[in-house]
Design a protein around this nucleic acid. Structure first.
Lengths: 225, 225
DNA sequence: ACCAGTTTTATATTTCATTTCAATATATTA
DNA sequence: TAATATATTGAAATGAAATATAAAACTGGT
């Protein structure tokens, strides 16, 4: 209500926009609060008033990426399990195609220095996977004896750890998606009803194959390092 | 070789010891490089010379906790799958019984600001889970078509994400172990041979039950918050 | 005991996130 | 329109990590 709130929203928007630009231009290195405030045309204190911390701003940039949700909405797949993998694939494609940008954003996800994460980040992520699992459950793919909440959390566990490994360079672009697929397929296979296990098993073996294929033999790595 | 190296080792030891003490006494708050250097009886520059960064020191403290490995060595279980869960349980008991200390240490695991993690942390964790899986595979519990390396990584994914949620307070002491157990049971069930699925399924449902049991009804939470 | 090479030390500096607070501007409300 | 409430601003201060540098101390070999 009112112009005061509108002004705030506008300032928030400018700050997020400035953060996005700075991250794109310089990576996380150039993202100092002074540079950010200057770029957004506000004082140094304002971002703190509106967001609380630098980290909250970076998370806000990540949240602000709506493209993914929009493009996901256009994904139609008859098979609810396929839909889950399609969602993962879509998200990971975004990340891979803009690695340095998203690596910076995801770094903020793993920052434990404040309480921002629990409040902002989780509810949304959760709801997303949970919806997909409930769909799969309704379609009879997931056994009713498992809690959608629990399964959603486990899938999110896989994805988040894989993203952490990707961010720090333990998992390269080629192995990211197959690795996440393996984890998802394992969990979904264990929770699925008999008729749905075969395709999940196939996907599992296929993903495992893709990981091995993009992993150079150990000796060669050791030799180079 | 020589006294030079011995002196270095001694200084390293004193720094790790000082860090451990400071974390115990004050949590991460009191762990400033100045306090650390003073407590260890070295100059401010020395920890940087020997470890590189504050984070590397905290990770060194975590690595230095040998109790777990030693006590795990005494764990004897006929069933290789049981052994995996026993290992998780043992580790989590340590963490729960000394929450604030281990929360500080684990925070460093999720810090993406430098490259220390990839080099120091992963090989050991990996080898540990991999060994357990290979044992289970040899005993016929895990299907040979799955790569031990891949499965070890997926288990580690679950554990690490759960630890992150625990560190930031998204997962309380009561739900930590059942949540990790669920994830492990799902993955192991999906990778297991037919004869081994029933006990895993039982553990899965049991853990799920324990999560629900320790989760207060939503309405009550909302009312309090 | 001496020399040469390393490492530590002491000290100063830089950079950065974050906080504080009085002053000022803007919006809401009566 | 005047009074009140709210938010931003500017400027300075704090505290901590990390880096730089030269002097001092120590080690290993001779």
């Amino acid at each position: 209500m009112g112009r005061r709130e509108a002004g705030k929203r506008e300032r928030r928007r400018r700050i997020i926009e400035a953060a996005r630009t700075l991250i794109r231009e310089t990576g996380s290195t150039g993202l100092s609060m002074r540079a950010l405030a200057a770029r957004a045309g506000v004082s140094l204190a304002t971002p703190y008033n509106l967001f609380g911390s630098k980290r909250a701003i970076v998370l806000a940039v990540l949240e602000d990426v709506r493209e993914f949700r929009e493009r996901f909405a256009t994904l139609r797949s008859a098979d609810p399990v396929e839909r889950i993998f399609a969602a993962v694939d879509l998200a990971l494609e975004y990340y891979k195609n803009d690695s340095s940008f998203y690596k910076t954003l995801w770094s903020a996800v793993f920052d434990t220095s404040d309480q921002v994460r629990a409040e902002i980040l989780n509810p949304q992520r959760y709801a997303f996977w949970q919806g997909l699992i409930i769909d799969a459950s309704k379609a009879g793919a997931i056994s009713k004896e498992f809690d959608a909440d629990m399964l959603a959390r486990q899938l999110d566990f896989i994805l988040r750890s894989a993203m952490l490994d990707w961010v720090v360079g333990d998992l390269d672009n080629d192995r990211l998606a197959p690795t996440v697929f393996c984890g998802f397929a394992l969990i979904l296979k264990a929770a699925s009803t008999p008729g749905w296990r075969t395709p999940l098993q196939a996907r599992l073996l296929d993903s495992q194959e893709r990981i091995m294929a993009s992993t150079p033999p150990r000796q060669q790595i050791a030799g180079n390092a």
